[in-house]
């Protein structure tokens, strides 16, 4: 993944999260969306399906670590790591 698509990944992640938490809710790329209580019980599953569909990756059991999914920055890093494999 080159830098252009890296930037694209962050935009796509932000757009997805905005749709799920609400356009009027403010959060930054380093903010833990789970700890902030911004998402409901279905969100983790929706997030996995979103990541797999949007970035053509497969989320495995060992990837399920809250750290990977907690912020926009961490999600971007997770995708880059999966793409590098």
């Amino acid at each position: 993944m080159d830098t252009t698509t890296q930037a694209g990944a962050r935009t796509i992640i932000r757009e997805f999260l905005r749709k799920r938490v609400g356009q009027d809710i403010q959060f930054n790329d380093a903010e833990d969306i789970f700890a902030a209580g911004l998402v409901n019980s279905l969100f983790a599953l929706e997030l996995v399906v979103f990541l797999e569909q949007s970035f053509d990756i497969t989320v495995e059991n060992e990837d399920l670590n809250l750290q990977n999914f907690s912020t926009v920055e961490n999600l971007e890093a997770f995708i880059l790591k999966k793409k590098d494999k």
Binding site: S41, L42, A44, L45, N61, E62, L64
Partner: peptide
């Protein structure tokens, strides 16, 4: 599934 992820991973997938 992953240990400790029974609800968000397994139960949510199954119920969906």
């Amino acid at each position: 599934g992953r240990k400790g992820w029974g609800l968000p991973q397994i139960v949510n997938t199954a119920l969906d």
